[in-house]
């Protein structure tokens, strides 16, 4: 039994190889981008809009409001990163209802990659907002003694992000696989439904934690003024 889709190698040439995780990710990317392009091709700014445009607007404005609630004043600046994080994880997790589908989020490599992206995004937005020196000074806060702890915190929370998502998705797949062998009739369906819920919750947790980390790095102008 394969625990991760990384183990399914489809093509290999030395260090370079295509596994199921990468191929599934490409497929998801294609579906998401093609769907978005198709729907946004005929956008209307009238009062009456199409249903699909309405769905996308609900998703985008929902993500925007969540970012704003966390404390980032200009959500349109962060929505590309945080929104993509949420949508990718959510679509990858919800797609488990498809047969023979293995979510790329069930691969530790993918979750690690996403965690590394968050790890890079935090200083990127922090430096962009506060400047390089001020961002580095934040590691000394409240005192220089906190520097190692802050550094450990940065690394540990990245690890936590990666392991949390991977653990949840992998365990969900594992549980369904085990249940299919024991009681193949009803319980796998229930667990799959539960997996859908878990997947959405995990996408939300991952993206909201990323938002919190970025918000912590970006000082709010109103607070600075006070």
């Amino acid at each position: 039994m394969k625990l991760s889709p990384d183990e399914t190698i489809l093509w290999e040439l030395g260090f370079v190889h295509l596994n199921l995780t990468i191929v599934t990710t490409w497929a998801l990317m294609f579906v998401m981008v093609a769907g978005a392009a198709l729907i946004t091709r005929n956008l209307k700014s009238d009062i009456r809009i199409s249903r699909w445009q309405c769905v996308l607007e609900i998703i985008v404005t929902g993500i925007n409001s969540q970012i704003k609630e966390v404390g980032l004043d200009r959500p349109e600046k962060y929505i590309s990163f945080i929104g993509t994080l949420f949508l990718f994880i959510a679509v990858a997790n919800v797609s488990i209802i498809l047969p023979w589908y293995h979510p790329p989020t069930g691969s530790l490599s993918t979750t690690t990659a996403l965690a590394i992206c968050v790890f890079m995004a935090v200083p990127f937005y922090g430096i962009g907002s506060e400047g390089f020196i001020n961002y580095l000074k934040s590691y000394y806060q409240p005192t220089f003694i906190m520097l190692p702890f802050n550094l450990i915190s940065e690394v540990s929370r990245t690890l936590a992000l990666a392991i949390r998502l991977f653990g949840n998705m992998m365990s969900g797949g594992m549980v369904v696989a085990i249940l299919i062998t024991i009681t193949p009739l009803i319980f796998p369906v229930i667990m799959n439904a539960l997996g859908l819920l878990t997947g959405i919750v995990q996408a939300y947790i991952f993206s909201i934690l990323a938002t919190v980390y970025i918000a912590a790095a970006v000082k709010k102008p109103s607070i600075t003024d006070k």
């Binding site: 596994n19 929104g83 590394i116 992206c117």
Partner: peptide
């Protein structure tokens, strides 16, 4: 290798969604 590929994939997806989803939708709104 998968980690690196997924990081690249993710940033490509960020750019593509920004181009085809967020900007048009936010512009329409």
């Amino acid at each position: 290798f998968t980690v690196i590929a997924q990081i690249i994939n993710f940033f490509i997806l960020v750019w593509l969604l920004k181009r085809y989803l967020y900007q048009p939708i936010l512009g329409a709104i």
